[in-house]
Design a binder for these strands. Structure first.
Lengths: 262, 262
DNA sequence: GCTCATAATTTATCATAATAAATTCAGGAT
DNA sequence: ATCCTGAATTTATTATGATAAATTATGAGC
């Protein structure tokens, strides 16, 4: 039965009362989405090839291609050439999702304090929830990350590396979260902060004390996580976030206005 | 000077070391994005028309169209026909952003408890931050929303309407947030919960007491917000979230596995 | 000055053909 | 038998041109 297909003649009637002027590629893309949902298709499952879709939907090649690009841009399909190729369902990757969400905030100029308000709320909760629930491998990994860079940075470039490394620590923690929503949010914030450009004030010396405290926090945090001390993990993370925020403010950092590279 | 343009001959060299096998439409789309950033283009600003882009990038019409579809799918441009038409930069709408992010979680089957863990953390913080900072209009609007539906629902359909209405209350609150990131997150969660299908257990009677408490919470919350009592707003919202979670669990709700209709 | 038909402009869709990329598979060398 | 090479095949990719649809601008008529 299908869905009476998208007859080129009157697509409005076929397509519910809503949406009068959606382009055909969009209609085709939507229909494919519905198709995927109805059949409960999973990550690798293959869609009909180009020729089959042209026949199925009764549209031209160009229209089908545009539809595929739409789905591809959203990260929902991947396409390959060659025998056995064609389009297949693909999970939206975290990177892709972050990039697409980043496009939204591009126009919203998010402030650092917005991000830190959020981090101070969520990161401690994550840490508390993770205490006692991490595998030995993960803990070892975190311990290694925390111990990297035993000395404060000498150059701006070095400082940026340390900054990114520190954020990678948080992203790693986020990946271990049972709560996918929380994990994504934290990774996203880490990503935004990683894209920052360091703008140290000329007269400001690198704040060695703040840096040292931050490093110590990470080490103590891993300890608390290992021991399963949720309350302590929460407290350390709270303190850590406050320190990180001060460090950023001291260096007058600004959020880079750019689209995230997928 | 432009960027030496994407010469059809060797796009790899022009396009940095990374990315060897990105399709031409994707390359064109990326270049347009860069263009927008470099020129700091704003919401209504117009892009060159199809013909100009064909000339500019030295690619075919089909390639340009596919590139436009990619950008359109991401919500970055809007396109119109006719004189004065063409493509223009367009802010990514909140709905679009939610829909795109929803695609990511489609494959992740988020649980209700994940969402409520997050809500319990963030919604009270939002409420506290909003206390005393809302305009009279917004407060009036919220008050109206809180007073709608003075009686418990009789039918499942009615109940669903009340559920959605209640979530709209939270979304409205989120819109008023100074923190865009927090506002988006809360709207997003409300959206997911709105898409739920009500699955009441057959033997379960609608829990009148829980419903009544929820309604009272909203009214008291608006009061606290009006008076600027942040601590009280925080407390009420915490309690409200706990109640809402219990209500959902009591009705055995499940998250609908579908793509959000943007 | 207003209305309405018409023209001009721009994207949207379609159709067709040629090109490029990836995979499979047959055949030959070792 | 196994490994390599290269042709055949499948599939997407790019290109071109023609026609349709939508929108705005123009101007004639009143």
């Amino acid at each position: 039965m299908k869905q009476t297909a998208a007859r080129p003649s009157d697509p409005k009637i076929t397509d519910a009362p809503r949406a009068q002027k959606r382009s055909r590629p969009v209609q085709v893309a939507d229909q494919i989405k519905r198709w995927v949902v109805e059949r409960d298709m999973q990550k690798g499952d293959k869609l009909p090839n180009e020729a089959a879709m042209i026949a199925e939907f009764g549209v031209s090649k160009g229209t089908v291609r545009e539809a595929m690009r739409i789905l591809e841009a959203q990260g929902l399909i991947v396409t390959k050439t060659g025998p056995g190729g064609g389009s297949a369902v693909g999970e939206v990757s975290k990177d892709r999702a972050m990039s697409l969400l980043g496009n939204y905030f591009y126009f919203k100029d998010l402030s650092l304090s917005d991000i830190y308000e959020m981090r101070k709320l969520v990161e401690p909760a994550l840490a508390a929830g993770l205490a006692g629930n991490l595998s030995d491998e993960t803990l070892a990994e975190l311990r290694e990350m925390a111990h990297r860079y035993p000395e404060p940075a000498q150059t701006a470039e070095e400082e940026k590396q340390q900054h990114i490394s520190s954020l990678a620590f948080h992203a790693r923690l986020a990946d271990a979260a049972g709560n996918q929503l929380m994990g994504f949010l934290i990774s996203f914030m880490a990503r935004i902060l990683s894209d920052l450009t360091v703008h140290r004030r000329l007269y400001a010396t690198p704040n060695r004390e703040l840096w040292e405290r931050g490093r110590r926090h990470q080490i103590e945090l891993v300890e608390a996580l290992t021991l399963g001390d949720g309350r302590r993990a929460h407290a350390i993370m709270t303190s850590h976030m406050e320190g990180a925020e001060r460090l950023m403010n001291a260096q007058e950092m600004r959020i880079t206005r750019e689209f995230m590279a997928e």
